[in-house]
């Protein structure tokens, strides 16, 4: 093979690879699925009805995984003997992830073969969890519950884009998989705080990433390999959502959405959540988030070619309403 032939062949091979890749992406039928399950009976005068909630969760899981019963659906998320972390959001006291939702998920995980002591309910600090009536427990054979302050952070710095952080040992060392349980709510800086932003509770320096409405930091943090690998499912607690004044709990701006949003594509979930909050704000006569200079652009960044965390475009998201 002379030099000319070698160069020609290399060029053709390269062109073929890139063209093939381009068409493969363009022609891909891959879509994100997001299930929105609602039932007004699930919240009655700010009280969550546990039996109704469990039924709603089952319905949403079956629809998402296209299964006949909830057990089959959960078996697609976890394997027996795995350690599963439930990342709740306890930052807003009353406006945090509902205890009843966590209980429902724990019940189904146990049925799917996960040992109680292999389930870890966690968030930033023990004190945050205690304020939400969770009991701190790091030993024994019951379900465990503790914060990053007890577990500590893995000393290796995770770096992506503009973000450099230590990640909680709960993610890096203890858990095989994470189930993300954020809340549907407005955020005074980042626009909304739902699936992607909930991972700020898993790093040591979230206070550094609220500049520029969290863009690109929230996307960057979610792009850490450890999160890509371990987050299995997101179930958004939209039982009582908040359309303004978040993330602090402001009862005057909450509304009973009485639902759950289930999916595995955090970007697609956040797109839907953004849409829901904007619609509610419009209904209540509030300006769009963009007008308040807090459009959650980090969601779009998370879906770009650099991050590839999920789908942003409407036509790429299959939304199922129950």
């Amino acid at each position: 093979m002379n030099r000319r032939i070698f160069l020609k062949k290399s060029f053709l091979l390269n062109s073929g690879f890139w063209l093939g890749r381009k068409y493969a992406l363009a022609g891909s039928n891959a879509k994100a699925k997001v299930v929105i399950a609602q039932n007004p009976a699930v919240v009655n005068r700010h009280q969550v009805q546990s039996d109704q909630l469990l039924a709603l969760l089952d319905k949403a899981m079956q629809a998402y995984f296209d299964c006949d019963n909830p057990l089959q659906a959960w078996q697609k998320v976890v394997q027996p003997d795995e350690v599963i972390g439930l990342k709740v959001n306890c930052l807003s006291g009353t406006g945090s992830t509902h205890r009843e939702l966590v209980d429902a998920v724990v019940e189904r995980l146990k049925e799917a073969g996960i040992k109680p002591y292999n389930i870890i309910i966690w968030d930033r600090l023990n004190k945050d969890l205690e304020e939400c009536k969770f009991q701190i427990r790091s030993r024994g054979r019951q379900v465990k519950c503790f914060g990053n302050d007890l577990a500590g952070f893995h000393p290796r710095l995770q770096v992506f884009g503009q973000a450099g952080s230590l990640v909680s040992r709960i993610v890096t060392d203890y858990c095989d998989g994470i189930i993300n349980l954020p809340v549907l709510r407005d955020h005074s800086i980042a626009g909304i705080s739902v699936a992607l932003k909930n991972m700020f509770g898993a790093i040591h320096n979230p206070n550094k990433y609220h500049l520029n409405t969290g863009d690109p930091y929230i996307a960057d943090v979610n792009a850490f390999p450890v999160f890509r690998k371990k987050i299995r499912l997101t179930i958004v607690d939209a039982l009582e959502a908040q359309y303004h004044g978040g993330p602090a709990f402001q009862p005057q701006w909450r509304w009973p959405f009485a639902g759950l949003i289930v999916g595995q594509d955090r970007v697609a979930i956040d797109c839907i959540a953004w849409q829901i909050i904007e619609e509610k704000r419009k209904q209540k006569g509030l300006p769009p988030l963009k007008q308040e200079n807090r459009e959650p652009h980090y969601i779009i960044t998370a879906g770009d070619t650099e991050h590839r965390l999920g789908f942003v475009h409407k036509e790429k998201i299959e939304t199922i309403y129950l």
Partner: peptide
């Protein structure tokens, strides 16, 4: 609405209840 504005550094963080500033 229980927000505060820090006046210590030029960042002037506006902070919600339960939240911390950039520092």
């Amino acid at each position: 609405h229980k927000q505060v504005r820090c006046k210590l550094c030029p960042r002037e963080c506006v902070i919600d209840d339960h939240e911390r500033g950039y520092c």
